[in-house]
Structures are given as structure tokens and as C-alpha cells.
Amino acid sequence: MTTPRSEHEPFAWRWLPFGAAALLLEATPATPLANRLVLALADQLAAAPPDGVSGAVPAISSLLVTFDPLQISLAQLRPLIERLLAELEPAPDRPARIVTIPVRYGGADGPDLETAAQLLGLSPHELVALHSGQIYRVMMLGFAPGFPYIGPLPTALRLPRRSTPRSAVAAGSVAIAAGLTGIYPARLPGGWHLIGRTDLTMFDPMADPPALLAAGDGVRFVAEANGVVP
């Protein structure tokens, strides 16, 4: 995972065939604006899929478009997506929906808070204040059902992943790594720094939609009074 760049840095699209039935549209470098364009394009393709297009999975700076090669060719698909890109407004910088995530920071709920703060040259309080001090955006879902990649984090909170991943991370754990923050929707292996935990259900296959957060949503973390580091 590369660190998200600044909003206004220029980027270029690359059109990468992904086997015979998918196309990877990738922005280099990965900028927040590219992410907002990718999300808008994914929404557009889901709302009005062109003939032969079967799905679109957005990521931080790319979109994987799957298609039926017997219905539409790569050569036909590319100009069609280029036209959409030219007409699209990127997903808004200020999201329409902002979801508040209550977090108990530190202690057993955030076992890496102290070490992460140390690595960043901050006090645990400063880390919590920075993490909960602003509105982020969900840049993609992935890794596991309903796992949101949220960001970009302020420069002061950018850390590489832990050198040794954990084989099990508790459901609801709030974590930071690689310039992003995420929430583990279930008990899963994980390599990010765990700074807190929420009781919200992030993913429920019986619900519609099944994921609490959608790509493009705004997210605000709020320190719960009963956290170790309020």
C-alpha cells in the first residue's frame, strides 16, 4: 500500500487488461481525486451497466471492470469508459453522508496505541485527538466483507504496517497503517496497529446493504467516555 498523495497532484490513467474478461483502470500516482473519480465511475457502472459489463470493484486508485468478452471487447470498452470519465463529476470531497464511529481508544481495546504513538513521536492523547479530529472518507471496501479503508490520515499519523501481523484481531478493532485507518468487521488476521475498538456491527449479510459503510461515505471517529484514553 502506498501512502495517499495530495489532492491536487496530477495523475494519469493506465488501461491494463486483466485476463480476457476484465479491465483494470489504474491511476498513477494514487491521489485522493483519482479515488473520488474511481468511486463515481463505479457508482455509474453499477447504476447503468453498459451491455456486457457485469461488475466494477473500486479500490484506492483503481477500478476493476468485469465484462463478458463475447458481448463487448476490450477495444469497445475503453472508449466507453473514457467517455463516462470525461462526463463524470468526482464523488464529492465533502461526503453527503457522514457516519459517526464511537471508539474506545487504548487499553485492551487498542493494544498498539502506546507503541504507535511512540513511533509517531506523539503522546497517546495527541494520537487520539488527531485520529478523531477530522472527517475522513471511505476510499474502498475489501480484504474482508465490509472492511473499510478510510483516509487519508494526516501526515502525522502515517506509519508502516506492523512488522509481524497478528493471526487474530478482535472484531470492531480500529487500526491505522500506511496512511489509512480501518475497522475489522470480524475476527480476522491483521497487520495494522490497533488503537481502539467500536461496538458497531460493520457487516451483516442479512442486512441491506450488508456493510455499514459504503465507499465514498464520510467517517468521523468519536472517543467514547469509557475508553482508556478519552
Binding site: 500500500m1 502506498t2 484506492i60
Partner: peptide, 12 residues
């Protein structure tokens, strides 16, 4: 190699 995560499919 350090790539930002991207969509993948069975067969990759």
C-alpha cells in the same frame, strides 16, 4: 513491489 490494493478475481 509496493502497489496500492486493486480488485482481483478468481484465476488471477
Amino acid at each position: 513491489q509496493s502497489l496500492p490494493s486493486f480488485g482481483v478475481l478468481p484465476g488471477a
